[in-house]
């Protein structure tokens, strides 16, 4: 199936009230990109750069101040049947698997609801079969045993697999993965990322992979967008961006990534910086950008 999820000049302002004064914070500023089936776009940037705001706007959890989200070339709905149709196609995996599953409900409930809402299963037998199939596809075996459990009985990695299964349940073509592994142990991150990669190949999904980890962004995506203070400051094929960064901020991000040859060097730099008395305001070197 062809089609695309296009984001055009997406802008979001948040109103900040401080006593009687109110000011605006531009969390996302004219962000545009096109997500195609089978392709992965990585959105990288530091905390507070607006990555998650973009994700929440695409998932229709926030209303953009201006700009459009187009599915297959048509402007997407914000309510009613149109929104349901949109959610059939666009789903999201949240960052924190400990918060994104309702502690009150079983794993089966989390998968059955989207299946039922989006008409993937009519009878309860069908529902059960599809639920187990989803659990098997995210490698939670034996599926029967997982279906009856509650979220608190599962580890972080297992929960995130459930969250991925839930996002797949409506039969979505586009997946927004908002830092899907940042809350997980380093040892299980690769497993979850490889699972996402496998599912993407099987379903020909378009994935928006939001991360602050440049290494996984390079390996898992075709294109990288670097966000800084709400703006996309650099974009291009992933190897291009990593190997030949143009923008100062991208260079700074890359220099912050650990490299074996630099072992000990950063620590020395930090000590020197502290000794020279440079204030904490420019600790990350972003104030001049």
């Amino acid at each position: 199936m062809t089609g695309s999820l296009e984001v055009r000049d997406l802008t979001k302002d948040f109103k900040i009230r401080k006593g009687l004064k109110s000011s605006h914070l531009r969390a996302a500023d004219s962000v545009s990109f096109t997500l195609e089936p089978g392709k992965t776009i990585a959105l990288v940037g530091e905390s507070g750069s607006g990555k998650s705001t973009v994700a929440r706007m695409i998932a229709k959890l926030e209303t953009p101040t201006s700009g459009q989200i187009l599915l297959d070339g048509e402007d997407s709905a914000t309510h009613g049947r149109g929104l349901r149709e949109y959610r059939n196609n666009v789903q999201m995996v949240f960052q924190d698997p400990f918060a994104s599953l309702n502690p009150f409900h079983s794993i089966a409930h989390h998968l059955e609801r989207p299946l039922r809402i989006h008409g993937q299963a009519k009878t309860s037998d069908e529902l059960r079969a599809k639920t187990l199939e989803l659990l098997e596809r995210v490698n939670l075996l034996p599926a029967e045993s997982y279906a009856e459990r509650r979220p608190h009985e599962l580890s972080g990695g297992q929960r995130q697999r459930v969250a991925i299964a839930r996002a797949l349940a409506p039969g979505a073509r586009f997946l927004i993965a908002d830092e899907p592994v940042s809350m997980l142990d380093v040892s299980i991150r690769l497993g979850v990322l490889n699972l996402l990669a496998r599912l993407q190949r099987e379903e020909n999904l378009g994935v928006l992979y939001i991360t602050h980890d440049l290494a996984t962004a390079r390996h898992f995506s075709d294109e990288i967008l670097v966000m800084f203070r709400g703006k996309v400051v650099e974009r291009g094929p992933s190897d291009e961006v990593i190997l030949n960064p143009q923008h100062d901020y991208t260079k700074l991000l890359l220099s912050a990534a650990p490299e074996p040859t630099n072992q000990g060097k950063l620590r020395r730099e930090v000590r020197e910086e502290l000794a020279s008395g440079v204030g904490p305001g420019d600790r990350f070197g972003t104030s001049g950008l």
Partner: peptide, 21 residues
């Protein structure tokens, strides 16, 4: 909470989110 946001993304109606989630 994220699980309420997740229910909205899944397409749950508001009354069901209030009553069930």
């Amino acid at each position: 909470r994220d699980y309420v946001a997740a229910a909205r993304v899944a397409g749950e109606r508001p009354h069901r989110i209030i009553l069930v989630e």
